[in-house]
Nucleic acid binder design. Sequence first.
DNA 1: ATAGATATAGTCGTTTTCGACTAGACGATC
DNA 2: GATCGTCTAGTCGAAAACGACTATATCTAT
Lengths: 214, 214
Amino acid sequence: MSSKRKVSNPLALAVMALLYERPMHPYEMVSTMRERGKHESVRLRYSSLYSVVDALQREALIEPREVVREGKRPERTVYGITGAGREEFLDWLRELLREPVKEYTQFAAGLSFIAGLPPDEAAELLGERVRLLEGEISEMRSHIDEVAKQFELPRLLLIESEHELILKEAELEWVRGLVREIEDGTLEGMSQWREIHSELEKARAEALDERENP
Amino acid sequence: MSSKRKVSNPLALAVMALLYERPMHPYEMVSTMRERGKHESVRLRYSSLYSVVDALQREALIEPREVVREGKRPERTVYGITGAGREEFLDWLRELLREPVKEYTQFAAGLSFIAGLPPDEAAELLGERVRLLEGEISEMRSHIDEVAKQFELPRLLLIESEHELILKEAELEWVRGLVREIEDGTLEGMSQWREIHSELEKARAEALDERENP
DNA sequence: ATAGATATAGTCGTTTTCGACTAGACGATC
DNA sequence: GATCGTCTAGTCGAAAACGACTATATCTAT
């Protein structure tokens, strides 16, 4: 069912989705995605787009329809989706909605080694994260409201932003709790954590002392 | 503050974290990460590890300490962290804990184009996702309990799994709600969504009809 | 005693991905 | 009419990441 995709960059899914509606040239794909806010959910870089388009064409999932030229602007190739492309798009979409995929986040990497910092500093940094997350969340909220009202987009077309929002909110709540537990010392493992770092500090102080009084 | 890292793969953070404790050779890094479950939060491939180690050495964040050989096994280079490496590790760690980073998930990409499937099918796929998520969550829970009891690891050292768990739970709750709203038709935009697909179906039926009765 | 499985310890070539750069068109502004 | 910034529309080379593959050692069950 979920055999390896020949073109696996999610941007390829977006390209096929757009061409499913109507033929376009690459630059138009970019502007359309931007208009609809899809660049918030699918990483979009020109350099990746052109190579993804090439790869899709190589696999015969899309095909060039015509080459147009306006004035002295560079030529633009208009692409359309093929039958195989439609199938691949739907199959991929089904897989993405159905099967959870393990993702590695930057924050999880940081959390994995949090014990490398002294607890007080960690709590402070996480406290700052709480503030930053609060800001991002309220910005996202007003952004969603704005877009929904201004362009009369139904919730359905902004569903991925809602998903992102609830994940951020869940993280916020969790980090708040974590900070509290570090601050009041109820997190399991706190004593060892403090000990390690106070010993490190003592060692540093002694080393400094020795250098000053040899 | 958050200037571009010379080596940006989170695996490099893990390598520095390990060498912060004591010198090791690459293969030992892998086994240590596996033992501690860090391969669940930091993507770990041999092929990436060796190039990350090379890059770290190039940047003088780590350095070879000795080359040992046991029997006929290939030589193993033992690396240690440098002063610059310690600094880079701490600075990076601080940044990761403090600053939320925008991440692009596969599921968000799928959600972005959910309207490409008919609502009934989408609801069914998401329902299946709910079941799969439930399974993953209960597995994670028992896995955390098991590891914590068997190795007496305090919660602090499993904190990144807890983070992953609460994110999965939040997604589960949200997807459950979404399925309900699609099924009972209360999701805003449902009528257009249904219309588009019933028209597509009609068109398909007509095309088929014409081919059969030319 | 030995076949087969698992653990150890990587290498290699290809494909992806990205960041930096280019370059004309067009409108506004001084 | 020179210049400044922004929009349109990409190209290019380097770096990163991955999957597939290799090869020996050691354990284990028959």
